[in-house]
Write a protein that binds this DNA or RNA. Structure first.
Length: 977
RNA sequence: GGGCGGUUAGCUCAGUGGUAGAGCACUACGUUGACAUCGUAGGGGUCACAAGUUCGAACCUUGUACCGCCCACCA
């Protein structure tokens, strides 16, 4: 016996365990192992993270696809796993150590710190996995992977070494985005441009406003950005003359090595080739001509600091300028600057330098400006362009085949438009900086010899082998010797014994490993094949690569999708996935991005607790229309929780009416019209949901299911079947019971990808009676949905539903009390309608609250009349009907119909329309006109009868429902004074 | 500066050339042993604006306005 309400919290855990115990999510198991594979690799969440709304959406959509394909019989692998998330995790642990143990990573040392991170990973690593399970994610957890697993780490090494050998990974000294807080280089993608507006205004020589260093310091402390400072640089030849430059970053002037002007800027042509004396520093620097300088910007003359600005770096290259680095890793002024500024933080130095320049009379003015300042996306502090040695991937070369694969359609984006974004970025791709000065991550497999020579290898032992080979061929006086014992004593270099003269030498070389680790995205870029076992030739790799669909948000197309494309094609020589489905962002109900600082974060787990995982999943799927962000309101989740309740109650109804499944029931052989109709509707719905999911229109699929379950099955079929189910026993009742149960089964299957818990639970409950179930719903075959519809049944039930709706409508409009039972007289009905009315009289009476249905040649006088097709249905309300109101109603109906006819007429009057529109459209218009004309005819007849009745009718207060309590109100309305 | 998207009912949004839709909210009424987390009925829209293409435009084209996002630059 089913409870009145579905209680998700009591059911979900049990159901999930049942799936796992049955091995339902296991790829390649049993007979399925022979089927066509379908594979999705999960976008790996941060191992120490917890589930947010973005995960909930992302994984719901994946689960819908995966459950759908599994039911369709495919051998499904949903490959789960987590990401070590270098910077994010390291920062979390550092913060934790700081607050709990009052220590920091530098004090602890690298080894102890990395141990602490592993400990934290062990402690919190299962959180997100368990949360995904609560959502219902049907991943093959037996294949769970982590980017720092032994296998995946081996893949990282192999890729690094491979790319290095091909020259696609190289080390370079150039400007990088340096995060002075986390103390690491970051890639361009990890830089966030934040717009800053200044407010400071000051001009030299304004007697009203003398320069106030204290006020400046105060203002800059509040916001150091957004101000444009004009500095005068005195000419070497004549220190009384100046060239004025404008800058938003005064502190970098300590590293200036030139001033650039545009070669055609007449204001400055005379100065080109001359020198200025850099104030505060005293260095003589040239005035150079360079196109980079824009006469329209600032003063037209621009200071050049090659070591601290990406553009200036290029200018420096062109003019062979020195690169003077004046900042250290903490973005403090370093020893290359004048003593007065050494050790100052960049922003303190800024205010000091501006004040000092002002004191020297070299500050011309300060004006507010708007510019964007690059910030580290994790640390939130302004990044510094900083000159360091880093490792780079030659992305430009790798991008070529990745672009081609999307151009020729081997991989397609859904919605297609995202391929433009992909192309745009890929075609303008810059070298990818992959080294990070962190401790948590894959350490770069590069070793340095005593002379700085780099050996890139899969292992230290191999690096020593390479080093030995190298130095021997170089006739290097040093002999290589491995450092420490790495438990692989048997891996002796074969060369060693063969080179006695090296052995004989007493010198040893020591290789030092690069301390940096790799960008997290380097390892996640291998995810599509490293999780399947690469570099080993595993059976999974053979079977599931290329994977089928990648489901992800647009915010990581560059970070992740692009890199998987490049690395997949490079190492597997095949695309990593054939379809990339890009979904939207989940925002709050006002359309704002959810963020902790705004306090508008909706926790998916709270929603699951409140409404159940099914309700949350259905909401997300129903709102996942392509190309638009999802604004999530709690009320929507509540609404779909109600939908789950509705489904539950439909099952209860079936149970109460003994609608049990019947062995061997063949829907194609049903004979009752309602049954044939609902079976056809179920088939149509199955076909619709199938094609919508295939096209990734999750919202349409969810909508079709919702409409069918609530609007068709519950609202109509169950109502229409009540007279049969509560009527006499017999074949009709048996068939209806079997049909109701069969359709419910279909519903459970169709809803399962969206609402796995409640459907699985109902599958079990409804399986308690009738023939034994084959197994769990999760592994049940998806409905076919073809060839079950029956046109005659559809038309007949359509007529019945139409009649009931119209009668209900007019009852309501005429304020007939709900309980009142009316007598209906049908006139002008043709044989078909008459037969339909007779066949379904019982249920029409029941659902439209009629006492009886009679047939007559003409509608009785003084009745309210409704046009149903060719027939007129009359409700005898003589004497109680408000004639004026009824006349108005009829006139309004006539007016509406006439307006429609007018529309058709104008269209048909257009000769070109008649000539050019397709025949079907013309026919449709003819038909419309005929229908509306007939309707008008009937309505006009009704109006005429009404008038006649009004003239002759004896006023009677004996309404047929005067015993009803509401009769008083009814009569009062009907007879206004 | 370049690119992408949006503007349809009070709200949130579907709708790829042929009769403007859904959910929520709102109003009225509640009856039949599935369901008040419900039922029945109802009101509500110049599809942002303008021009064009077309027999026909919410839909295609161009432009305008406003809103959002991404990329680049920023003296």
């Amino acid at each position: 016996m089913l409870e009145k309400h579905f209680q998700p919290a009591e059911v979900e855990g049990r159901i999930y365990r049942a799936w796992e115990e049955a091995g339902a999510f296991k790829a390649g198991a049993g007979k399925r192992g022979q089927a066509k594979p379908y594979c999705i690799v999960i976008p790996p969440p941060n191992v120490t993270g917890s589930l947010h709304m973005g995960h909930a959406l992302n994984n719901t959509l994946q689960d819908v696809l995966v459950r759908f394909e599994r039911m369709r019989g495919r051998d499904v692998l949903w490959q789960p796993g987590t990401d070590h998330a270098g910077i994010a995790t390291q920062m979390v642990v550092e913060r934790k150590l700081g607050s709990e143990n009052k220590t920091d990573r530098r004090t602890m040392g690298r080894e102890a710190f990395v141990r602490a991170v592993w400990a934290w990973k062990e402690e919190s690593g299962g959180t997100i996995t368990n949360q995904l399970k609560r959502l219902g994610a049907s991943c093959d957890w037996s294949r769970d992977r982590f980017t720092m697993d032994e296998g995946l780490s081996r893949a990282v090494l192999k890729v690094f070494v491979g790319l290095h050998e091909k020259g696609l990974i190289y080390k370079d000294k150039r400007l990088v985005n340096w995060d002075p807080k986390v103390q690491t280089a970051i890639s361009d993608l990890e830089v966030q441009q934040i717009e800053k507006k200044g407010a400071l205004t000051w001009a030299d020589g304004d007697p009203e406003k003398p320069f106030d260093a204290a006020a400046l310091a105060k203002a800059l402390k509040k916001d150091p950005s957004g101000h444009l400072y004009h500095f005068r640089y005195p000419l070497k030849d004549d220190p009384s003359k100046f060239i004025t430059v404008a800058t938003t970053r005064p502190e970098t002037m300590l590293g200036d090595t030139a001033v650039a002007v545009h070669p055609e800027d007449e204001r400055y042509t005379a100065l080109i080739g001359k020198h200025v004396v850099l104030p505060l520093v005293g260095r003589e620097i040239p005035i150079v001509a360079d196109d980079y300088s824009d006469p329209a910007k600032g003063t037209g003359a621009v200071k050049i600091t090659p070591a601290h600005d990406f553009n200036d770096f290029e200018v420096g290259e062109r003019h062979n300028l020195a690169r003077i680095n004046v900042l250290d890793a903490f973005a403090k002024i370093d020893a290359s600057a004048p003593e007065a500024y050494r050790g100052l933080d960049r922003f303190v130095a800024r205010e000091r330098i501006v004040a000092d320049m002002a004191a020297l009379g070299l500050l011309a003015k300060i004006e507010p400006t708007t510019h964007t300042v690059p910030h580290g996306d994790r640390s939130g502090v302004p990044i510094e362009p900083w000159l360091t040695d880093q490792w780079y991937v030659d992305a430009k070369t790798l991008a070529k085949q990745a672009i081609a694969a999307v151009e020729d359609g081997r991989t397609r984006f859904v919605p297609e438009n995202w391929s433009r974004t992909y192309f745009e970025w890929m075609r303008n791709i810059e070298p990818w900086c992959i080294s990070r000065q962190l401790w948590w991550g894959h350490q770069i497999p590069a070793w340095y010899g005593p002379d700085g020579k780099i050996f890139v290898a899969m292992s230290e032992a191999e690096a020593y082998e390479k080093a030995q080979g190298h130095y021997r061929s170089q006739k290097h006086p040093l002999s290589p010797q491995r450092e420490g014992d790495h438990g692989e004593g048997q891996r002796q270099s074969p060369a060693q014994g063969a080179v006695p003269h090296l052995q004989a030498s007493s010198g040893k070389i020591t290789l030092k490993r690069d301390e940096d680790v790799l960008d997290t995205w380097f390892s996640s870029g291998l995810w599509a094949f490293s999780t399947l076992g690469w570099p080993d030739e595993s059976p999974e790799l053979q079977r599931y690569y290329p994977t089928s669909t990648l489901v992800t948000g647009f915010d990581i197309i560059f970070f992740w999708v692009a890199r998987m494309m490049m690395l997949g094609l490079e190492f597997m020589h095949e695309i990593p996935f054939d379809t990339v489905y890009i979904h939207a962002l989940v925002r709050d109900e006002k359309g704002q991005k959810m963020s902790k600082s705004k306090g508008n974060v909706i926790d998916p787990l709270e929603l699951i607790d409140a409404f159940g995982a099914d309700a949350l999943r259905f909401t997300l799927a129903a709102m996942a229309a392509q190309g638009r962000d999802i604004k999530l309101a709690k009320s929507r989740v509540e609404g779909y929780r109600n939908f789950a309740t509705k489904l539950w109650n439909a099952a209860r109804f079936a149970e109460l009416n003994s609608c049990a499944r019947v062995a061997g029931f063949d829907p194609a052989k049903a004979s009752e019209t309602v049954n044939r109709w609902i079976i056809g509707e179920a088939g149509r719905t199955a076909a619709a949901i199938t094609s919508e999911i295939e096209a990734y229109r999750f919202n349409e699929a969810a909508g079709a299911a919702y409409q069918f379950v609530w609007g068709t099955y519950c609202d109509w079929y169950l109502e229409l079947s009540k007279p049969i189910l509560t009527g006499a026993d017999g074949p009709a009742k048996d068939e209806t019971r079997a049909t109701a149960a069969w359709v419910l089964d279909e519903i459970l299957k169709l809803l399962h990808p969206f609402m796995p818990f409640i459907t699985e639970e109902l599958w079990a409950k409804t399986g308690e009676v009738g023939p034994k179930r084959d197994g769990l719903l999760v592994l049940t075959a998806w409905p076919e949905g073809r060839g079950l519809s029956n046109k005659a049944a559809d038309e007949e039930i359509g007529w019945v539903i139409g009649a009931i709706t119209d009668i209900r409508s007019v009852r309501s409009e005429m304020n007939v009390p709900a309980a009142a039972e009316l007598e209906l007289v049908l006139s002008g009905a043709n044989a078909t309608s008459k037969a339909r009315a007779e066949r379904h009289g019982d249920l029409i009476r029941r659902l439209a609250r009629l006492k009886s249905i009679a047939f007559a040649a003409e509608a009785p006088k003084g009745s309210v009349q409704i046009v149903i097709g060719e027939a007129t249905a009359a409700l005898p309300l003589a004497g109680v009907v408000d004639i004026a109101a009824e006349r108005q109603r009829l006139e309004k109906e006539i007016e509406k119909a006439r307006a429609e006819i007018a529309k058709v007429d104008t269209r048909m009057a257009n000769a070109e329309f008649v000539a050019k529109a397709p025949a079907a459209v013309i026919d449709e218009n003819h038909q419309r006109k005929a229908d509306f004309s007939a309707q008008i005819e009937k309505l006009e007849a009704a109006l005429k009868r009404l008038k006649a009745a009004a003239d002759t009718a004896a006023l009677s207060l004996n309404a047929p429902w005067t015993d009803d309590l509401s009769a008083g109100r009814w009569c009062a309305r009907a007879w206004p004074s």
